[in-house]
């Protein structure tokens, strides 16, 4: 067991940021195709922080945020969280309303376009955005680090950020240790939407993750 927990050197953190940047590029392509208008993602800012320091970055702890939780299975286990503030959530959902009918892609009734009549539909839109972002980032990690990580079905909840995270942090025994925060900014026309992705590897997976990042960086430098 690695007592140091999730500790990355500056070079490794840069390398992780680079992977996330590749992921962001793919996410922008995915969103652009899905929405039929140009979506850009600002180069994501990646931080590795202890859990108590993460919360103030995300939002005022007493205000609600929308959060999509996805369990991770495979070479690295743990949880991913996609977090947006309440106002940003509305912006995101409005943005997704512009998407052409999902029914086409899924071979269902083409009339069933994404509309947001009540909060549950909003939830499924959020879950889908979380799904896409986590998918592209995990693919980027796979491509660089050769780690196979899959995410489970997303679950959405809206509440105070601390209360949403504590169960997962406790379950993963990561309360006092560090987690990866990826700050994303989606830019659509003039609108900027700030979202966060939290990557919480379980205590058992930290070594695997840190070692793979280290090895992949060295392999990259040698090429």
């Amino acid at each position: 067991m690695n007592d140091k927990g999730l500790v990355l050197s500056k070079e490794q953190l840069d390398f992780l940021s680079e992977m996330m940047n590749v992921g962001a590029g793919n996410a922008a392509t995915a969103f652009t195709q899905m929405l039929g208008c140009e979506v850009n993602l600002k180069m994501p800012a990646v931080h590795v922080l202890s859990a108590p320091k993460v919360i103030p970055i995300l939002h005022d702890p007493s205000l609600p945020v929308a959060c999509v939780r996805m369990g991770l299975v495979g070479d690295v286990t743990g949880d991913m969280f996609f977090v947006v503030s309440e106002e940003q959530k509305t912006n995101l959902i409005h943005l997704m309303e512009r998407a052409p009918p999902l029914g086409n892609a899924e071979g269902k009734n083409p009339q069933s376009a994404i509309r947001i009549p009540h909060s549950t539909t909003g939830f499924s839109v959020l879950a889908e955005i979380g799904n896409i972002l986590v998918g592209v980032y995990l693919t980027a990690i796979h491509d660089f680090c050769k780690l196979n990580i899959y995410h489970r079905v997303p679950i959405v909840a809206v509440d105070m950020i601390q209360s949403l995270l504590d169960e997962s942090l406790v379950a993963l025994r990561r309360q006092i240790e560090r987690i990866v925060v990826v700050e994303n900014e989606l830019i659509v026309e003039e609108k900027r939407i700030r979202t966060f992705l939290l990557f919480v590897p379980s205590a058992e997976s930290v070594n695997t993750l840190v070692d793979s990042i280290g090895q992949a960086r060295i392999a990259m430098c040698e090429e």
């Binding site: 702890p61 601390q162 949403l164 504590d166 169960e167 406790v170 309360q175």
Partner: peptide, 23 residues
Amino acid sequence: VAIGEGVVTKAPDIICSKGLGSC
């Protein structure tokens, strides 16, 4: 009081804790 902390005091103080989930 944050997670994993405890505090003892007397009147008229107020103790608060924010964002309890499974805690």
